[in-house]
Design a protein around this nucleic acid. Structure first.
Lengths: 339, 339
DNA sequence: TTGAAAGCGCTAACAC
DNA sequence: GTGTTAGCGCTTTCAA
């Protein structure tokens, strides 16, 4: 019965490795943590012992003393429209897990739907249980970011946050500009837009890009050509109806989300318009939605997975003490049809 | 300078609470862990102290002694087709997080894409770092499940696993049966199917349901009416082409996934068939895909979020030592059009 | 019912 | 370069 050689689960401890390698616990610890103050001989012996024993460090014990958790959280403040949040979320998540897969850092995932959950999450995250937090789809009135920042938790936002902070975003403004420039180059002159909610940065930025392109093309800005939707298909339908009432002569539409573009397309078809002969429609690619429409939808592509990867990298560098610049990733127009 | 009253992060410790409540650390611990051996007076005093101090237990310290982590992992063996995996995944994930949101259990998320990642994950998960694991979209040849089981890690599968085990699945067979029964009831007589891969349980089960319904309707089973796809849209297109070559007189198709149904529809339209007048098409709803097609697709709905929730519940009960029965959730046909 | 005390497995001074 | 040792904050006997 060798004491302290294995834990209650039967797994070998540092002690066991030390004994086997003929060194002290301290030395084993140094090897594991890549300390430079270890002789090559010791390093080799320890490595061998670790290998033979199948030793895996106990995270809890390490956390207790280092106060690092090697865990980061991704929080989705899921109060937004499902349509907008879900495919977006999956893409970003893929990027995050891939980036983290190259490290020893684990990902904790949580959705903050109700106020109660948000409170629990606040307590949990403020309690030194994670090294940092990534926030996705936060609303301007969400108290969580402020609370976490106040608690000193390193934070990174997906999408430009209202209150400032470290973030990764897609170049929404330029994407919208490209879309509208494309329409203008195709000879469209009365280009309408279905904008997103004015209290969300993608909504605001994409509208700005629309205006940029109009100005660059020398086309007049007409408020009658601007309607607002909530990123959903129904919102797109309603906005399209409103636009047609105000400007039945419009010849193109840039919708600030694919679902809205889809709604617009459907409303147009229901009323006998030919797409894109009569009206060209372009969306903004929050998802795969546009690929499944008939015909497939031309839309602005944003690199979701890369955004996720950059968020993870940025958070890691924040945790390491750096103060990285915001990252704004390029978007580009993917021409499929209808536009 | 009061020693041991707060940790390095400035947060109060058990010791601080004990001092404030005028009891010992042991008593505070008992209160926190709902031990019955505590007087009402002590309980009240401790509760008050916890409240005033804003005390949150240190997880690492607790884990170290209890050897429980209060963390479960969701692993996605993402070697499958994106189309099939992604929306499916998002739906299940939603259910998992919701179910876990009601508990103190945290969710660790990982994707095992490469062999290297799989190995790391194996080491990590076998190392007492999580209390249990949920596995999604595992292939029959994936070594991870076996390794984890061998390491004594409680496991729950999403979808019926090849090798047996605890799992939650949708009633794929009955869903397929409903779809085909619906087509038969509408007077279709030469009903083809685009089946899924024969090495995946949804593929097998949905094909069985197709055959069930044919038999029940007294329709002959004809192998020429069965083609196989890989759940993707392109697979659906190819299968549809093959079916039409063999049986140009077919009058309906049940596709074992929405993307395949979409591919079938597109192939049909490209060749001038009217849908559903000439051919009725029904899919299997792994996602929202069918909603975006034009016209929207009739398909079999599976309760993704509920599957996730049940998986989480099942895992928790496994961890508690129970041996729950497999759960097979009902599916139902959602009639939209084309079918 | 409660307090005292012994660790859980590890890291990080500190001494050599 | 290495060993020794003192905890990290908590749970859990064991006595009282």
């Amino acid at each position: 019965m060798v004491s302290a050689d294995e834990d209650a689960g039967g797994r070998p401890t540092l002690e066991a490795v030390a004994r086997r390698a003929g060194v002290s616990r301290g030395t084993v610890s140094r090897v594991i943590n890549d300390s430079p103050r270890v002789s090559e001989a010791a390093r080799t012996a320890v490595a061998a012992a670790i290998d033979e024993l199948g030793y895996v460090p106990n995270r809890a014990a390490r956390m207790l003393v280092t106060r690092r958790t090697d865990t980061v959280a991704l929080i989705v403040s899921e109060s937004q429209d499902r349509l907008f949040a879900e495919p977006f979320f999956a893409g970003v998540l893929r990027g995050v897990t891939t980036a983290l897969g190259a490290t020893e850092v684990q990902l904790l995932l949580a959705m903050a739907q109700s106020a109660a959950e948000r409170a629990r999450l606040h307590r949990y995250l403020s309690g030194q249980h994670v090294d940092g937090v990534m926030l996705l789809s936060t609303h301007a009135d969400d108290p969580l970011p402020g609370e976490l920042a106040a608690a000193g938790v390193p934070l990174v936002f997906g999408g430009r946050p209202a209150g400032g902070g470290f973030y990764v975003d897609a170049d929404n403004r330029d994407g919208a500009r490209q879309a509208v420039a494309h329409l203008a180059a195709a000879g469209r002159r009365r280009i309408a837009t279905i904008a997103g909610p004015p209290d969300m940065s993608p909504g605001v930025d994409r509208l700005a890009g629309y205006r940029d392109a109009l100005a660059a093309a020398g086309l007049p800005a007409d408020d009658a050509l601007v309607a607002t939707g909530d990123f959903s298909e129904d919102g797109g339908r309603a906005a399209m109806r409103a636009l047609l009432e105000r400007r039945p002569d419009l010849d193109a539409v840039f919708a600030a989300s694919d679902p809205m573009a889809l709604g617009a397309l459907r409303h147009l078809k229901d009323h006998g318009a030919r797409v894109p002969a009569d009206v060209a429609v372009i969306g903004f690619d929050d998802s795969e939605t546009g690929r499944h429409t008939d015909p497939p939808l031309t839309s602005v592509h944003q690199p979701l997975a890369e955004m996720g990867g950059r968020m993870a990298e940025m958070l890691l560098s924040r945790i390491a003490g750096a103060a990285p610049e915001p990252v704004i990733l390029p978007t580009r127009l993917v021409v499929r049809a209808s536009g």
